[in-house]
């Protein structure tokens, strides 16, 4: 049978930053083809197809964040595969190769992590599960 894709609505304008992304205007309806864990979702809108940030979208039906996993306060060990310098107060800066614990995997690709006493948001695209080869 036909594949029914989930429809989401854009909550804010988004201007693409590369040719594989598409622009969004508030209220645009998009169909989601693939949800990447790093917070970029591949969608189609009219004749356009490309990646958009998941955080700019809300589901048309059903409760928001229905698929969001619960926080795991025990933490899951990950290693940074790229350094990142915090740009906002609730983010955390890390160098390459640091081991941290992931507490909450959010769909928008910004995960809550713990490093020692410090917690904050970190881009999941720069993390890899500890013990995994690249």
């Amino acid at each position: 049978g036909p594949i029914i894709l989930d429809t989401y609505r854009a909550m804010a304008d988004f201007t693409k930053t590369s040719k594989h992304e598409i622009n969004l205007r508030v209220g645009d309806l998009v169909e989601i083809v693939e949800k990447s864990q790093n917070g970029w979702w591949f969608c189609q809108c009219d004749s356009h197809r490309g990646w958009v940030p998941a955080s700019y979208l809300e589901p048309l039906d059903g409760p928001e964040e229905a698929e969001e996993a619960e926080p795991n306060y025990a933490g899951e060990h990950h290693v940074t595969v790229k350094a990142y310098k915090a740009e906002q107060g609730d983010e955390i800066s890390l160098e390459l190769g640091e081991t941290i614990e992931v507490i909450h995997k959010l769909l928008d690709g910004w995960w809550v992590i713990r490093k020692g006493e410090e917690t904050g948001y970190f881009p999941s695209t720069f993390l890899q599960k500890a013990g995994k080869k690249e």
């Binding site: 790093n38 940030p53 928008d108």
Partner: peptide, 22 residues
């Protein structure tokens, strides 16, 4: 075909979205 997702972090949720989620 679907290309690999961008490797740069997606933007943080815009302010108007964060307000809505609170």
């Amino acid at each position: 075909s679907i290309k690999n997702p961008p490797q740069n972090p997606p933007p943080r949720p815009p302010v108007e979205v964060r307000r809505k989620r609170v």
